[in-house]
Design a protein around this nucleic acid. Structure first.
Length: 573
DNA sequence: GTAGGGTTAG
């Protein structure tokens, strides 16, 4: 047996021993004692092997500094860089900066990998300025950015909505003599597609092959997901076949995306077939993929099937997560099976699952649409059972005073509390609240909630100046009660602006998303409610290009109409 | 003699 093999297996055992100690004991005096008893010498290579396996940053941090104090041990660039990555994932930026100082004092210069991990960490935490500062700093320190540097900067900026900056970085990368590789193309295709530039994403997908870069499985997955999200399900399925013709085996991600696409096309049985195929190819279905089937069947109105998949999931020993419970809950509520909804909510709480704002949103919408006082009371009980802060917020909503400031303050405090929720959930919840207040006759309060939410950027796309004095009011993601409230308050805002500045809008397009090209079904309630409101107040509108979902007001008639004092009170009707 | 970084879903 050559000595190298014995030596390396010895290395492996030390690494394995340390990892199992740290897994069992975490970072603790007991772990420190156990490590001391090992009485082995270790080099930076082995230390790095251990660090890479530690996911808990407190354990990694403890181990790293224990090594640093150990006589005869010296960290190197690799261990420092790995540690930067671990702390970065945990967003421990104070600890990272301390570590970087020590790294330099220890005689280890950060290299391009260190900087890249730093940029990635800042990007993931949404600190884009800091990420760009690192990019500038590394160049001052004489470190050339590589493909990974540019790719990371492109990705984080595009994800944060700064597509222009991302494209700029793509140009700069090529200017620096770095040709895009398959990885870069995949990132760019994803960025462009997610930003709504599907044609450009498509173009790049075909272009990459011409430049000698073969799409890999991830590239295909990205393409399939983009087509599915744009509701081009047939294109998505074609890419799925192309992927297999190209010799790739679908992975878990592929299966999940394809199942969702099939489900949204209404091919539920086919989605189930893909699920079976996934299992046949030895992928172990996880909770979210069961959740997807629960959701698809629930949305199609087949509660029994949804419930069946939920049970099947429990039988494999998986613990449900909150979104899956929400899917089943939504299915029960849709067919007014409030008793089953109640049992499900109880079992959620029993499992220690904390109802999310989506859970509360579902229940509140159900309450708004309740067909009888009994059902409404039942919904209220369910809402109280969730223990969600939105319930206390609604219960303690004051009646609007003369200037409405008391309601504004109440809403402001609530939204501040909800600030860490993602925008979609916040929008959904606010929408349900406004709809509920509006339909319960608390119209002044509904208007105030909408105004504060709009100020706090919960509806960033609702009101937009398309060009000078040409405005778009986009109501298509709202419920009808919210749409009517939002429109009334926005028109009142235009009136006040016009009276103050003397300049009125030259054109307003009111978009309800039920137009010629809209694929949104079931949104006609918004169009109908908006049309009725506009008719009632004689708003001078017309439609263009046969788009019946877009109401346009223009020029002199619009400005004259805005002068009417009733524009201020439209929302009360 | 050896190692470290970037992309996709829910």
């Amino acid at each position: 047996m050559p000595s190298i093999a014995r030596h390396s297996s010895g290395n492996g055992r030390i690494v394995e021993n340390i990892c199992s100690i740290l897994r069992q004991l975490g970072w603790s005096p007991a772990a420190e004692a156990a490590l001391g008893n090992l009485d082995c010498s270790m080099d930076a290579y082995q230390a790095n092997q251990v660090l890479k396996q530690l996911q808990d940053h407190t354990v990694a941090h403890g181990f790293f500094y224990w090594l640093k104090r150990k006589p005869g041990f010296k960290h190197d660039g690799h261990t420092y860089t790995t540690m930067v990555g671990i702390l970065g994932q945990a967003k421990q930026f104070t600890a990272i900066n301390k570590l970087l100082d020590q790294m330099v004092r220890d005689g280890c210069q950060p290299n391009v990998v260190t900087y890249n991990r730093l940029i990635h960490s800042y990007g993931r935490a949404n600190y884009l300025n800091e990420a760009v500062d690192v990019f500038d700093q590394m160049q001052k320190d004489g470190c050339e950015p590589d493909r990974v540097t540019y790719c990371t900067l492109i990705d984080i900026h595009a994800k944060a909505g700064y597509l222009d900056f991302a494209m700029d970085m793509y140009e700069r990368m090529q200017g620096a003599g770095l040709a895009p590789d398959t990885f870069t193309y995949s990132v760019m295709i994803n960025c462009l597609g997610k930003a709504g530039h599907l044609a450009s994403a498509d173009k790049l997908f075909y272009e990459m092959v011409e430049h000698g870069c073969t799409p890999n499985l991830v590239t295909y997955n990205i393409m399939i997901a983009l087509q599915a999200k744009a509701r081009n399900y047939e294109s998505a399925l074609k890419l799925y076949r192309d992927l297999q013709s190209a010799g790739f085996e679908p992975d878990k991600v592929t299966y999940s995306i394809v199942m969702e696409a099939l489900g949204h096309l209404g091919y539920l049985d086919e989605a189930e077939a893909v699920f079976s195929e996934m299992k046949q190819r030895n992928w172990v279905p996880d909770e979210p993929v069961y959740g997807l089937l629960v959701d698809l069947w629930g949305k199609s109105g087949n509660v029994e099937k949804a419930w069946g998949w939920y049970q099947a999931m429990l039988q494999t020993g998986l613990r449900p997560n909150v979104p899956t419970c929400n899917s089943l809950l939504s299915a029960f509520l849709r067919v007014h099976r409030l008793g089953d909804a109640y049992s499900l909510l109880e079992s959620m709480l029993g499992l220690g699952l904390i109802p999310s704002s989506q859970t509360y949103t579902l229940l509140l919408s159900c309450c708004t649409e309740a067909r009888s006082p009994y059902d409404m009371g039942f919904c209220c009980d369910l809402m109280a059972t969730t223990g969600h802060p939105a319930h206390l917020f609604l219960l303690s909503m004051p009646s609007a005073g003369a200037d409405g400031q008391n309601v504004r303050d109440h809403v402001g405090k609530f939204l501040d509390m909800m600030r860490s929720e993602d925008r979609e959930s916040k929008r959904g919840l606010v929408d349900a609240v406004v709809d509920f207040l509006h339909k319960s006759g608390l119209k002044e309060e509904a208007g105030l909630v909408w105004e504060v939410a709009a100020q706090k950027n919960v509806y960033p796309d609702a009101v937009r100046e398309k060009s000078s004095c040409y405005w778009l009011i986009n109501l298509h993601v709202m419920s009808d009660g919210t749409a009517v409230t939002a429109l009334s308050r926005t028109l009142a805002w235009f009136r006040r602006e016009m009276m103050m500045s003397g300049v009125g809008p030259s054109r307003i397009d009111i978009v309800t998303g039920w137009g010629r090209r809209s694929r949104v079904t079931g949104a006609s309630m918004v169009r109908q409610a908006v049309q009725e409101l506009l008719h009632m107040f004689s708003f001078p509108f017309f439609t263009v290009n046969g788009n019946t979902g877009c109401f346009v007001g223009c020029g002199e008639p619009l400005n004259k109409w805005l002068l009417q004092s009733y524009v201020e009170r439209m929302h009360l009707l």
